[in-house]
Amino acid sequence: MITTAKSSTRSITRHPGAAAVALAAAAALLGGCSSGGTSDDPLKGGGAESGTVVVGSNNFAESILLADIYGEALKAKGIKVSYKPNIGSRETTYGLMKNGAITLLPEYNGSLLAYLGSKAKTKTVEETTTAINGKLDSKLELLKPSAAQSKDSVTLNAQTAKKYKLTSDSSISDLKGIAKDLVFGGSPEFQTRYQGLAGLKSVYGLEFKSFKSLDAGGPLTQAALKKNTVQAADVFTTDPTITREKFVVLKDPENLFGFQNVQPLVRKGELSKEGAAALDAVSAKLDTKALLELDAQVQLEKKDPLDVAKAWLKSAGLS
């Protein structure tokens, strides 16, 4: 070691270039640091350039698909659109709507109402919209709802349904006395939401054996149900795997999960009249059947949601 070090000192005095190269490399990296930056990130600061509609979505396939549908409909009217898809749960996206990082988000009216802290039992879609608008941040508003509904649900796997003799005519309240033996699966946020474990307890008096954090009705939930890792789970009613795997969706007589119409949430005054009209036109055409079919194209046929959105808008005469 000592001999190498000695010889190295000699060579360094002969090759001062080595040190210079090292310094130059460091300087180059430093330069990259200042020029790279994160300035192009639309989430940072007060939003994108004026006139551009930033369409956000939650981190599940249907939300991304809906964002593409609404976004492309705006594009078809010549409005500048940028996407911020696949962000996270509503707990995150609502905050981003409030601070203006995103201007448009496909929402589900019932979930949004529950998220805003209301336990009001609304009887109609209009009532729901009014109730939400009363609770909504002053900078935000809802556009017209679509007929398409995608609800959270309490869904059993086939073997559990069979074991306790429950069918799709049974209701959530039939789980009384059974729930304590069942492991419930859902997204981490389901654990604390009113339209989740909290509501199942207060409305139906159900307490499950334990809760397993999975995903928002996605593949983890499907796989866990299928493998009986969980016996009951929150699955979106538009999920194409329900029929494929013979899952049993229980009825919700107390309407805990409420209305779940797809409804665009926007920032006030940041969308032109024309833009709002374009979104309303989409909502008018979109129904549960169409949504189910589009979901199947994305999740089962593995088509890209953007392509699916464009094709549907075209077939519906909206682009």
Binding site: N59, N86, I87, G88, D215, G218, P219, L220, L300, K302
Partner: peptide, 20 residues
């Protein structure tokens, strides 16, 4: 996990939600 800021890691989530 924090809003798709994981570059190539974002593929992991998409693989799951699109069954790919």
């Amino acid at each position: 996990l924090i809003g798709n800021q994981g570059a190539l890691g974002n593929l992991l989530h998409d693989a799951q939600i699109y069954n790919r």
